[in-house]
């Protein structure tokens, strides 16, 4: 039983620790998402501004590839915010038509490039004509992630240890109490009150039957 108890307490301590670790990690993931959303909201405003301009021009009959004023606009917008790496305008197939970074023009962008915010542009027929993609510097996300991780680690590791230790402590206390009760249970004289009462009633009943018979058998085992 001692071994079983030890294993049990260890398992429970592990569950407590794992559960705290799980909670901390998922809290981290949640905060990370919130941080990303807040960061991206900022770049979405830029994407919106550029997209509206390009849609206006396309309504005037200037097809997206022919909007030669866009590169200037993209460069200007990209310069304003140092966290922006590049702003692309891609056609509906993801082919980059213009970019604040001249090297990027002519590339093909995936549907959901990492570390970017997109806004779809439509023409007056509400058909997609392309996307504005604001690529931001992942460093600002990474810096946020690092700060969040550090802050959470600072709390989580001591908490995790404390939870495990507290579980072990409670387990040991309970085990000691169980052991004590067991030891007492070995001797009917130290049984808990209800058990002693039951035993007394049984003894009385047995005594009544066996005494009448005056048989030598019986008595207390």
């Amino acid at each position: 039983m001692t071994r079983t108890t030890a294993v049990l307490i260890a398992l429970f301590a592990m569950i407590a620790a794992a559960c705290v670790a799980f909670g901390a990690y998922f809290a981290y993931a949640t905060l990370l998402n919130a941080n990303r959303a807040a960061v991206e909201a900022r770049f979405a405003i830029t994407a919106q501004r550029i997209g509206a301009t390009a849609e206006l021009a396309s309504g005037l009959g200037i097809a997206l590839p022919a909007q030669q004023t866009l590169p200037d606009l993209l460069r200007r917008e990209a310069r304003i915010d140092t966290a922006i790496r590049a702003i692309d305008v891609a056609d509906e197939r993801g082919h980059v038509l213009f970019s604040s970074d001249p090297d990027r023009a002519g590339r093909d962008e995936p549907a959901h490039p990492a570390d970017s915010v997109s806004r779809v542009m439509e023409n007056d027929l509400e058909a997609r004509i392309g996307r504005v993609i604001v690529h931001y510097d992942p460093v600002i996300l990474a810096a946020g992630a690092e700060a969040l991780a550090a802050d959470l680690r600072f709390i989580a590791i001591p908490t995790l240890a404390a939870a495990a230790l507290a579980t072990i402590a409670v387990g040991l206390l309970l085990a000691a109490s169980l052991r004590r009760s067991l030891r007492r249970a070995a001797d009917p004289g130290s049984w808990p009150e209800p058990a002693r009462a039951a035993l007394a009633s049984v003894d009385a009943a047995h005594a009544a039957v066996l005494k009448r018979d005056a048989s030598p058998a019986g008595g207390r085992p």
């Binding site: 309504g59 005037l60 009959g61 023409n123 007056d124 027929l125």
Partner: peptide, 13 residues
């Protein structure tokens, strides 16, 4: 107004 260019596109579709 409706842009003439866009109306032409719509007819095109």
């Amino acid at each position: 107004v409706s842009r003439y260019y866009s109306v032409g596109q719509l007819a095109g579709t």
